[in-house]
Amino acid sequence: DDADMLASLKRVEDAEGRYLKSDRNLKLTYHSVGVVRGILTSILHKALHRLYEDAGWHPIVFFAEGTIYVGNDERRLEENLNNLEEYIAQELRSFVQERSKYGVGEKAVGPITQRVIRSPEYLYISENTVIEFWDAVRRQNSIANPNVDRISHISESEAKELIGLYNLLIYLTEVVKQCNKDKDAEEIFKCIFRREFPNVSEDVLNYILSSKIANIKPIEEKIRIAKLFREGLETRVREELLDDVVERFKRITNELREFGEKYHGIDYNAKARELMNDVSYPRFRVDTEMWDAYIHGKKKGTPLCVLCSNRATT
């Protein structure tokens, strides 16, 4: 009988107020979510499954828009639903962390002529996203093979090397700028920079901290600062030199990561609060108004639900 009853439920809402005949202590309840989005919808479902299960309710029937659960402790469920925001935020956080194994850090990189850190929220997630970020920077033409005008007294290949180095400094300057709202971060940066580049002039450090390194600077100044930086590096061929500098920049960025995340990370709780609007469950009360048809703010035509094609009335 119970199996027939469960199989005959057409929508999650049909579960409301029901119980299992085989054990009258076991009640049914449900959650449902708006199904307009993609991965965020599946994250919401996962968060809600975890929330219900932690309250002792077991998922038993699954629909695209929600899940029916069986259990008996309504008080514990009600208490747990107060933590809905935390559950969603936690699920988002672990999804993004997990996801950061697959190239999220690359998405943070912008071209040297525009915002060089296009999506800072994807840079500071983990050690791995920092590595991906710098590897993606390293592959940019502006680093590996920059266009250079003819510059007097130096060869084209030397000019390419120096401009490549300078452009790397632009990326580092932006990283430091984003973490620098904290005075602690500035001190930490100074220490690590001196540790990673013991023979580089203190002037280079000061140029970075005062944000004097940028793409709009005249070419002579770029070359001058790059030479200053180059003098403090062990002499190597261009490819190796750039690789080595990038490795050191990765370590520097990783030590600044907590500061970057504080100011530029993803606000998981804010996202969770927005997503909560997509969730409904039997005891979740919102003010609703019933209309003959939903017309407020609509200029012309009959507004139909994009999912079920019925006239919207709530």
Partner: peptide, 11 residues
Amino acid sequence: ICSLCEFESKL
């Protein structure tokens, strides 16, 4: 584009 849809598109 709403902030959730933007977030979704980046994910």
